[in-house]
Structures are given as C-alpha cells and as structure tokens.
Amino acid sequence: MGPSTPRRLRALGMSLAAALALTALGGPTARADAPAIPEFADGFGLTQDPGKTEVRSGTDFTLTVTTPQVSGPHKIRVFLPSGYHANPGKRWPVAYFLHGGGGTVNDAAAAPALRSDKMITVVPDGGRKGWYANWKMQNTVLKAANWETFHLEQVVPFIDANLRTAPDRAHRAVTGLSMGGSGALHYAQARPDLFGHVAALSGGLDFGMAEIRATVVATELNLPGAWCAVSSASGCPDYGPYVDSDAIFGSPYPVFGADRLWRAYDPAAPANLARLADTSITLYTGDGDVVDAQTARAARTVKSRLDQLNIPSRLVDYGNGKSLAPTCNGGHNYGCWAPAFADYVPRLEAAFAAAATR
C-alpha cells in the first residue's frame, strides 16, 4: 500500500459517514449510487463535519464547517458547472453570493441564473444578522461573530485550494442582495485584490441613512417586520436571538464620534467607494415597496458618488418592476431578484470570458 492510502481511507470513511447520516435523515444522498463530489481538505481555520455534507447532485452540494471565528457550524453551498467533472484540466471563475438577512445558503436556489455552466457559484452562510462584518461585541448570546474574517480569510482560500478555480480578481466576483448587497459592496472595497466584480441587489448600501441604521438595529433586536418584504426566499425572516443594539457596529448615534464603526464600514462613503476604481460595479433596485424605496435612495447615492469619482458603474433602477420582469413588482423579493440575476449573470460570464483572453 502506497503513502496515499491513509488519505484515501479517510476520504472513504468521510463519504460513508455522510451517506449514512443523510440516509438516516432521508436526505438527498440516501441513494447507494450518490454522485461523487470533489474531495475537500480542511484548512485556513475551517474544519469540516463530513457527516453533515448534503449532496443533491455531483454539481450541487453543501459542506458544513466550523471555525473559531464564528460560533457554531456553518454551511457553504456550492454550484459547479455541469462540465466541471468532464474537464479536469479546466479552471473556472467564481461568483460568491451573499444572502439576505434571515436567509440561508439555500436562498440561492431561488435565483436559477446562479446555476451557471460557465462559473462556480459559492454561497457561504452569512448568519441571520451577520451583516458581513466583524462584530464589535464578541460576548453576546451568539458568541464569536467575525463574519468578514470567516469569508475573506477562510472561505475564499479554502475554495481556491479545493476546487479548480481561476484564483485571481479578474475571475472572481462577489454578489449579494439586501443585507448581502451591502456585504458584497463592503467586501469588494475591503479586498479589491480579491474581487474584480461586484453586484448589489436592493442593498442597504448607505449607512449614512438613518433608515438603514435603524434596520440593522432592528435585526439585532429581532424586531418583527424588519425588512420583512421577503429578504429570505422562505418568507418573512427570523433574525435570531436578541443581541445588544450596539453589538455589531457600536452606537448608531453620531454623537462625539460614537458611530465611528458605522462610518468606517459604510459602503457608500466616498473614501470606500474610491477603492473600487478598478472594479466592475453593478447595482439593482426597485422602488415598489417601503423597503426598496429606501434601497433605491441608497443605490442612487452610491451611483452619484461613483460618478463624481469618475468610477464607471451600472445602475439598473427598475422602479415598479414592469421593465424587469412580469414577476417583479418593484419590491424587496425574489420575484425581482431572480430576473435581476438573470440579467446580470450573462454579463458577468462575458466579463470572465473576456478576462481569459487578455
């Protein structure tokens, strides 16, 4: 037996454990002929729980990982192109999708365009109210909550190490909606070396708006109705247990600099937008309900400031939704977001293809 045997035995044990666990749950891999998925090795601070791997097909699966950076187990759903397994020498661009508040990694299934045959789509858990940030308070009932570190310093390199990605910014995008829209724009600003493309759909982009700050606080307190126009594909979201209203960004009140963390994070701040000078930027919003009326204001502010900075961007302001799709009423829901992704993904695929020819 060669030196690779122990690793193969471990992989076999992991596969059997996953199959047995999901069989007991009546899960999607209960069949004996469950399709194979790529083997993932732990690393970058992430440890897998193989017994909780969910395999829907060879190109649609969910890993469960733990990390000291964010308390509890967390899922990472992956959509591979249909040709991934048949082209072992090919490397693929990657789009990261950040779900909305109260959502889960399974929300991505509500936007079929994310299942692309020209790129890998990765959907990391963002928590019910993680806000894609490293929280100021790490001692709430939720304990460790360094979401930004988890995603940017752990998930991204973990994916690059385990899948055949094209690991450069020209072939990597970050997209998101609602809470994930602000997260996507923030991540593109925080790590322009990682992401060459960003798209924010109905995002809470302008942290200078009192309405946006109030929404963040409402999710911290799990107040009913906070952004409840279906930012989760499953309906009005539950934002989880109560935490202090200052838990994520500290005090939201602009008194004696108390709101410094809000201002530092603010995706609409000109200093942060300036970091997107070499990034492809797309914004989508309607204005057909009380929530998207606010996201439209935020998106227009961001677009105006980008124009002032002479940074190209594309704003799709579809108003009441009639110009976008019959399913869209201009509101904060997947009836609008799914067709928005159907518009965006082919453009992103073309940008990835153009980068490959340079």
Rank of each mutant, 00 (worst) to 15 (best):
G176N: 04
R169H: 13
N139M: 00
V290C: 07
D287T: 13
S231Q: 10
N272G: 14
R7C: 14
A298G: 10
P254I: 02
A21G: 10
L205R: 04
A170M: 12
N87K: 14
P241R: 11
R128H: 13
G330C: 02
T66E: 03
D160K: 07
N329Y: 08
Y187S: 12
W147Q: 00
I212M: 07
W262I: 07
I76G: 02
R191I: 05
D292G: 03
L276T: 02
G130M: 11
A144G: 03
G103R: 04
L16R: 11
H186T: 03
D206A: 11
G100E: 03
P81A: 04
D33W: 03
P73R: 03
L80S: 00
A166P: 00
E39N: 13
T47A: 14
L46D: 04
R77D: 06
A24T: 09
W262D: 09
A18P: 01
A268D: 14
L177F: 02
K90S: 08
T29A: 15
S116W: 03
L80V: 00
P73H: 05
R56Y: 08
S234H: 13
K136E: 10
A218Y: 07
T175F: 03
N222L: 15
D238I: 03
A34P: 04
T53I: 15
C336Y: 08
G127Y: 06
L276R: 00
V65L: 12
F256I: 01
A340P: 11
T327K: 07
S15R: 15
A293G: 06
A17R: 15
P6K: 13
F97T: 02
E39M: 07
L283P: 00
A36L: 09
I212E: 08
D289K: 10
L63I: 02
G100F: 01
L223N: 06
F158H: 03
Q294I: 15
G126S: 12
T301N: 12
P252I: 05
G45S: 01
A188F: 03
G27A: 08
L185Y: 08
L223V: 11
Q294M: 06
S182M: 06
G103T: 05
P224I: 11
W337K: 01
G321K: 07
P88Q: 11
T140M: 04
A86E: 10
L16D: 04
G176V: 05
L205N: 12
V345T: 04
Q294L: 07
G102H: 09
T285K: 08
D246Q: 11
G26N: 08
D160T: 05
K322R: 15
D125G: 01
S313L: 01
K75G: 04
G319M: 13
T165G: 04
Y132P: 10
A229V: 14
V345H: 01
A110M: 07
L221Y: 10
A299G: 08
A354S: 09
P81I: 05
A109T: 15
G26K: 09
A226H: 14
L315V: 10
G204W: 09
T5A: 12
D259S: 12
W227G: 00
D343P: 01
V141R: 00
F79A: 01
G101K: 02
N310S: 13
A190S: 06
Y96N: 05
A268F: 12
V70P: 10
